[in-house]
Nucleic acid binder design. Sequence first.
DNA 1: AATGATAATGATTTTTATTATCATTTAGTA
DNA 2: TACTAAATGATAATAAAAATCATTATCATT
Lengths: 148, 148
Amino acid sequence: MDNINKKEFKNTFIKCIEEKGLRHTKQREVIVDAFFSAGRHITSEELFNIVKKKYPEIGYATVQRNLNLLCKCCLAEEIKIGKQKTRYEQKYGNMHHDHLVCLKCGRLIEVNDDKIEKLQEKLAKKNNFTPIKHKLEIYGICADCKSK
Amino acid sequence: MDNINKKEFKNTFIKCIEEKGLRHTKQREVIVDAFFSAGRHITSEELFNIVKKKYPEIGYATVQRNLNLLCKCCLAEEIKIGKQKTRYEQKYGNMHHDHLVCLKCGRLIEVNDDKIEKLQEKLAKKNNFTPIKHKLEIYGICADCKSK
DNA sequence: AATGATAATGATTTTTATTATCATTTAGTA
DNA sequence: TACTAAATGATAATAAAAATCATTATCATT
Ligand SMILES: [Mn+2]
Ligand SMILES: [Mn+2]
Ligand SMILES: [Zn+2]
Ligand SMILES: [Zn+2]
């Protein structure tokens, strides 16, 4: 079932690059594969190191560029926490969610709250503001770090 | 009445640097003054340009350093939106608030919603997470940009 | 299969924001 | 006044991400 999702993810990517008149390459294949399989919230550097194992000739720039492309295709999303390197989260088939950010261990905990989402809509409307997306991050100490 | 606030702001700063065993300088005086008087959400560069008028010999590094110091004193707070330069918001006497961020003109609209704040606390607690601070940004199109 | 237009790659450089360095000056005190 | 250490200002270093560019690869067309 994970493979079905992966196939869908890759198909969506292929459709997207075709729509843009871009080309299919071995590098893209390997990068998108690795990005889907890797955990959430990966940096370009981490992905580069993974991809290098399958494709040692790959350049960092290619990984970075294709992560940007995945973002344009709405299959990835940038996450910027403080001064850390940008992380990329895979989006396809994943519900929107917000993050609890542990200030001790850096962990990102994914959360969701419908009521908050609704109230945000309301808040925007009250200001005659058309919301497109949002970012909610709660910084603090996670359960694990507290019990240590 | 604005001057009273300014006096309070500056006194808080003076108290803070004395507690830290730091020194009072003409540069600090001018920078803190300008920072308080300037609008919200200023960049270090913008502040530098303002301060230069009163004190042409000032160095950029000094402005940057003192903004960082103001943050340590909890009199300023960094705001990072996308890839923009860090902006600094004055905090003393200002309620916590969140931001609506216009994707067209870049404007930051300050908003507040008690219900959302409460629900965030609840959400954190549900995850056994101790919240310390949070960031909520809603990106979209502001009223002005819509009417143009 | 060969061609040609152009997108993609990989190595490298550039950009840009922020922090660090360091010689010199200055503040605070004894 | 003199001493100690913080602060300053000019500059360099750092680091992440984007841009550049010569070369290679893709793909529609022949
Ligand atoms: Mn996530
Ligand atoms: Mn604000
Ligand atoms: Zn933690
Ligand atoms: Zn606007």
